[in-house]
Structure formats: structure tokens, C-alpha cells
Design a protein around this nucleic acid. Sequence first.
DNA 1: CGGTATCCGTAGCGATACTG
DNA 2: CAGTATCGCTACGGATACCG
Lengths: 123, 123
Amino acid sequence: MGTKKTKNYINRNCSELISLIMVGETMQLLSGKWKMQIITFLLNNGKTRFMDLMRGVEGISPRLLSRELQELLESKMVVRYVTNTKLVTVEYELTEDGKTLKGLLISVANRGTAHLKYLASRE
Amino acid sequence: MGTKKTKNYINRNCSELISLIMVGETMQLLSGKWKMQIITFLLNNGKTRFMDLMRGVEGISPRLLSRELQELLESKMVVRYVTNTKLVTVEYELTEDGKTLKGLLISVANRGTAHLKYLASRE
DNA sequence: CGGTATCCGTAGCGATACTG
DNA sequence: CAGTATCGCTACGGATACCG
């Protein structure tokens, strides 16, 4: 492979290439230290209250949980349910769109263990 | 679902729950604004030189590309080849481990388009 | 309970210039 | 070509206190 002119780096739809733009887009939506864990928790446990999320996603602060939930609400990956307007009960749940992240999250989790094994095997 | 004692939120291996810890672990490894795009590009194009990565991953600075490549090298997801020690030719390539990210990246990219469609359908 | 307000440190990122 | 050095910013995240 010599240095021909300049390669065509723009992704063509007809090929099997993975779109850099879409990858960037998605990763931006999922950016934030806790977002993936929040989604994972909701995937595992379904509709969940704020304080239960606090307990479930270990280490997160209320400020950050609140912020990242809002971002997930904005991008429509999560819905918010308020039950008692006076005595306050709020639950969060993944939308249908949010639930489509399941396969992705499974891949992510599996890769975690696979990577650890890979590292172990090389040393 | 009332407020029973405290739910058991620790993931058990025997269930189908996705491990929060592994998700966190992986996402930390993949953190950095450009890492996923770099991996995607290498997945699409195979062994690639530094400057070609610069051109391929649009918007990235040499500083950041250098840094993120080093991190990928440290976590053994990428290999570095030097050909001419004097006239300098360097190429980067995914390791076998790095290549296992393909499914993940495809999910990520697909979700990008799916998400856009979802948003469009709701307004 | 379900958050927001405030404060603050640092790590992440960008732009640019420079080097072997 | 393949990076590193320097600089400066701001956005992200942590801790804590407080509010309806």
C-alpha cells in the first residue's frame, strides 16, 4: 500500500463501514461519568425512584444524578413519573428508545470481562 | 411495589443482570472525546499512519490524537509499528482485543440513526 | 423524599508553535 | 512525518448545605 493520492475517508452508505459521525453522535449523548451506569441500572431494575438510584449507582452525588437524569430526559431516553404532587414520589424509567441500549450495554459489560482476561493472558 | 426493606442491588452472577461494575470499567477505558472514533476508523481502515488518522478523525488535534493513542496502547487495544527508524513511518492497528469492539461500535452507530428516527417520529 | 444552590478544584480539551 | 511543549480555558465532577 503506497501513498496514492488522498484516500477517500468519507464513509459511503453502500459499504459496511461504521459511521464515524454516528459513533460520535451517540457517544456524545452517552457522555457523562454515570450515564451508562444509570441506564444499566434502569435496565436491570425497571422503574426506580431517585433515592433508590442514589443507592444503586454507588458513589454518585444527588447533584450529578439529577443533572444526568435531566440530560437523559432531554434526549428522551428516560421518562419521569410523578405520583403524589404533595407527598412527592418520583420514578424514572427507560423509554422504548432507551431500552434499545440493552444490546449495547451487554456488549460493554461483556467486553469488560473479556478485556480483563485478555490482559491477564498476556502477562 | 411497596417500600419493603432495602432491595438487594448488588448484581448476582447467576442472573441476567448487566454488571454495573463492568460497564463502568469499560466506559472508563473508552473515555476521551475521540477514542471511539479512533477505534472506529482503525476498524474501518486497518493499519493507519498518524497523519492519516489526523485526516480521518475530523477535528482532532495532534496533541489529543497522540494522547488518546497512547492510552489505547497502554490498555493494549492498539499496536504501534515503526518502520523506518530514521525516515519515520509509524502505523497503528487494533489488537485482537481491540477488534472485539466491532460489535459494540456497530451497535453504537446504529443507535445513532435509530435515535434520530425516534426523535423525528415524536415531533 | 426529591431535588437545587453554592463553591471550588482539576482534568479534559483546544489552538498553536515547535522539534527530531 | 510523527509527534511534544506550552498555554489557557471551561466544563465536568465532587462535597456540602439547604429547600419545598
